[in-house]
């Protein structure tokens, strides 16, 4: 886009003097030097463990957990294919596929519900007078003060058979017997939406705060209905916030471990639980590592699709 900018192209070519070149080189050197600590840290803390995971995924599992230093492609084979332990027939690993699908489905649903609840919340906060907004934002971040595990157990207390929801409904006479909420997919959904909602509201708020409300007024002046204003003006303008929020909710949901474990009753595994099984009772670290990498690749593909879509819609706009 910048190359097509006629104003820039019209500028005469600028030939730098030797002194300028030297000082620029020094500046570049200094910048590199200054960022070395951060780069080293990033490399060690991000790439290092990742390399270990990659390495472990192609080793042989040790007899009692851990790995043996022998190369083996068995873990990767088992991520995708399943050799029946009884008749040795080979088929797609449908246990893994189903667990992947369940996680993906629940994460999408979590993202959707968080968006439906988070959007009006962010809109509400963004339309308050500026001095009030800080207070509202502060209230939204309060849940982060408490540990995730404790918040999940709190949700469990609320939706238990003898918990607040059921006992209130029963004393009001709405229901006669408690509704079984705990240990259902609904419980996991409630828990995940609750836990990840702030991650949706904050980026949404950030883009709504920058929203020029005069455009909304202009749309009304041009006889747009409320729905049209929402669809044609507000949503396109806050789209980066919607996407950022959705990604921030979707990715951790996909690997969620604690919430499905505590609220879902553990009857149906999610990805996080499947990976944990391999490192724990399953004593198969390479398979666990391969499954983790598979999750990583799926997330990366999702992000790439997003980046391409965003850049395309931007170049179109």
């Amino acid at each position: 886009m910048t190359a097509a900018d006629p104003a820039r192209q019209a500028q005469p070519a600028h030939s730098p003097s030797p002194g300028e070149v030297a000082s620029r080189a020094a500046e570049v050197r200094r910048n590199w030097l200054l960022s070395t600590p951060a780069l080293t840290l990033l490399f060690l803390a991000a790439s290092g463990p990742l390399l270990v995971v990659i390495l472990y995924s192609v080793l042989t599992p040790g007899e009692y957990s851990g790995v043996v230093w022998e190369l083996s492609g068995d873990a990767w084979y088992r991520v995708i294919l399943h050799r029946d332990i009884f008749d040795d027939t080979v088929s797609l690993a449908d246990a893994h596929l189903r667990i992947f699908w369940r996680s993906a489905k629940l994460s999408l649903l979590t993202t959707f519900v968080a968006l439906i609840i988070g959007f009006p919340t962010a809109y509400f906060v963004a339309t308050r007078p500026p001095q009030q907004r800080t207070l509202w934002l502060f209230l939204i971040t309060i849940p982060f003060w408490t540990n995730l595990l404790i918040r999940t157990f709190a949700i469990m207390e609320v939706i238990r058979n003898e918990g607040i929801v059921n006992s209130t409904l029963m004393s009001l006479g709405v229901i006669e017997a408690p509704i079984q909420l705990l240990y259902t997919d609904t419980a996991v959904l409630i828990g995940m939406v609750y836990v990840y909602l702030p991650l949706m509201v904050l980026p949404l708020y950030a883009s709504m705060e920058r929203l020029d409300f005069r455009l909304v007024e202009a749309a009304y002046d041009l006889y747009a209905t409320r729905l049209q204003v929402l669809r044609r003006v507000i949503i396109p303008l806050v789209k980066p916030g919607i996407i950022a929020g959705s990604i921030l909710v979707f990715i951790p949901s996909l690997g969620a471990y604690v919430t499905p474990r505590v609220l879902g009753g553990g009857k149906n595994m999610m990805l996080g639980n499947l990976i944990e099984l391999q490192f724990g009772q399953g004593r198969n670290w390479p398979l666990g590592a391969a499954l983790s990498l598979t999750l990583l690749v799926i997330v990366m593909i999702a992000l790439l699709v997003y980046v391409r879509n965003v850049s395309r819609s931007e170049s179109r706009g």
Partner: peptide, 19 residues
């Protein structure tokens, strides 16, 4: 303590159970 090969059979059954 079950041997590794047996353990693998059990993990396979266990994973299939929780899919």
């Amino acid at each position: 303590t079950c041997p590794k090969a047996t353990q693998d059979l059990y993990t396979a059954i266990w994973t299939e159970l929780q899919k």
